[in-house]
Amino acid sequence: MESLNLLTALAHVNVEQGFFYVLAAIAIPLAYGVVFDRNVIRSGFLLIGVFATIAGLFFLLQAQFLGLSQILIYGVGITLVIVIALMLTNARQETGMNPALPANVGLASFVSVLVFTTIYLSLRSAEDWPLKNESSLSLPPNIEMIGKHLMTYYALPFEFASILLLAALVGAVMLSKAEPASLANAGDEAEQAVDGTDRV
């Protein structure tokens, strides 16, 4: 593994820190975009970017399995569902408007700044983090570790999670099932709409 030597050597030169800041500098604007972009569908796509950068952070933290799951489940699965939901609902209604409810803006910014300050101050004030010194490079691949844990100590929560997913699936299907009556009078309405439009 000649080539790997270089990578491990580079890893010691605090590249990790630089990567972290680059990822953070991508994640924060994207997160702002998610909240503030006037086009909701666009903010849906930006959310994918946020998740991708967070997956990058996971890779930095040596959590390869979680990073990959993040890409697989969050980055692609959940966000795509969100984007599709956005496209199915009428996103045009909102574009061009201020995405925020005006009455809440002041309060919300106050609360969010407060939350950040609280968390940050509590982080700073904590003196004795129970840090461990084991280098995680020498450990077995974390996918094995996770698998072992899920099958032994955490078997019960694991099962519960699967039941939760099943329940969510069934619930979602029940909720979003279209009632057949609602489609009945769509035809004449459509006709009206076509008649009324420009036929250029």
């Binding site: 796509f45 994918i48 990959l68 890409i71 697989l72 692609v76 699965g77 966000t79 795509l80």
Partner: peptide, 10 residues
């Protein structure tokens, strides 16, 4: 590979 190959649809 599986994770990466799911990205193109985005």
């Amino acid at each position: 590979i599986l994770a990466v190959s799911s990205i193109p649809v985005v």
